[in-house]
């Protein structure tokens, strides 16, 4: 690929100097970020976006874009963006969080931001594990899945976040996408940000994403995508809510 090809392959708001990215080989995060970047480009919002990134693998997104960006604490990106939006309603506030950050340590912030219909966009990457810290059990780990803190298999309970948000907020934009359907994911994220632009309140996209490292499928790409598209998508339906 020449420089021009590389440029065309990335969103305009992406920071090419930081490529290749720092995520693990095969990680789904860059796919989610690309979709987000193209959505921001298409809406012409690069100069208006305040991009908040959580701790966990999502923190590496700090380096991905040329956007005004803030890295916060684990689980605290949603309230930081809520506070920012209240103080500057003209900003487009995007909170980029992992499933541990949004659904465990930051669950109170996530749920209450949804209940209050805060006019921000939350993108949660669901890869069924805590990835950065070494593959521990998350609220999204599938029943029976063997992970570092559940070596005998994860328990039977897991979180259906889009379903939960829809339950507490009838007007929010809620959708679940998947990294392997890029066009659909980009459309979902664009619609979520448009929802914020229109001042309609909370918009939320959960994205099913692969983690070959912690799924222990680094050398088995077919197994990675089988798990993502067959197992995860079965438990977590990809659709608008």
């Amino acid at each position: 690929m020449n420089d021009q090809d590389i440029k065309l392959a990335f969103p305009k708001c992406a920071r090419l100097a930081s490529k290749p990215h720092k995520f693990c080989p095969g990680c789904g995060h860059p796919e989610v970020l690309k979709a987000l970047g193209f959505a921001i480009d298409e809406l012409g919002l690069q100069k208006k976006t305040a991009f908040g990134v959580d701790i966990g693998c999502s923190l590496l997104a700090w380096n991905y874009f040329n956007l005004d960006s803030i890295e916060t604490h684990h689980g605290r990106t949603i309230p930081t963006m809520v506070g920012f939006k209240k103080a500057n309603p003209d900003a487009i506030c995007v909170a980029y969080v992992g499933d541990g950050g949004a659904y465990a340590i930051g669950a109170g912030h996530f749920l209450n931001a949804a209940i209050r219909n805060e006019n921000i966009t939350v993108i949660v990457v669901n890869n069924a594990v805590y990835a950065m810290t070494g593959g521990q059990e998350a609220p999204t780990t599938l029943p029976g899945m063997k992970v570092a803190t559940a070596p005998c298999g994860a328990d039977q309970y897991y979180m259906h976040a889009p379903e939960l948000v829809r339950n507490v907020n009838p007007t929010a934009f809620v959708a679940r996408g998947i990294t392997t359907i890029q066009v659909g994911l980009r459309k979902m994220i664009k619609e979520a940000i448009q929802h914020q632009l229109d001042g309609k309140g909370f918009s939320f996209v959960e994205v099913l994403s692969q983690c070959p490292l912690n799924w222990k499928t680094m050398d088995k790409p077919q197994a990675t995508f089988d798990f993502l598209e067959k197992e995860m998508a079965k438990t977590y339906p990809v659709k608008y809510y």
Binding site: A50, I70, T72, H73, R76, P79, T80, M81, V82, G83, F84, K85, K86, A87, N88, A91, G108, H109, L111, N112
Partner: peptide, 16 residues
């Protein structure tokens, strides 16, 4: 929703 949230909202307000 709690003081942790309030503290980070405060940071957001100041950043803005």
């Amino acid at each position: 929703e709690d003081e942790t949230g309030a503290g980070f909202m405060l940071i957001g307000g100041v950043l803005a």
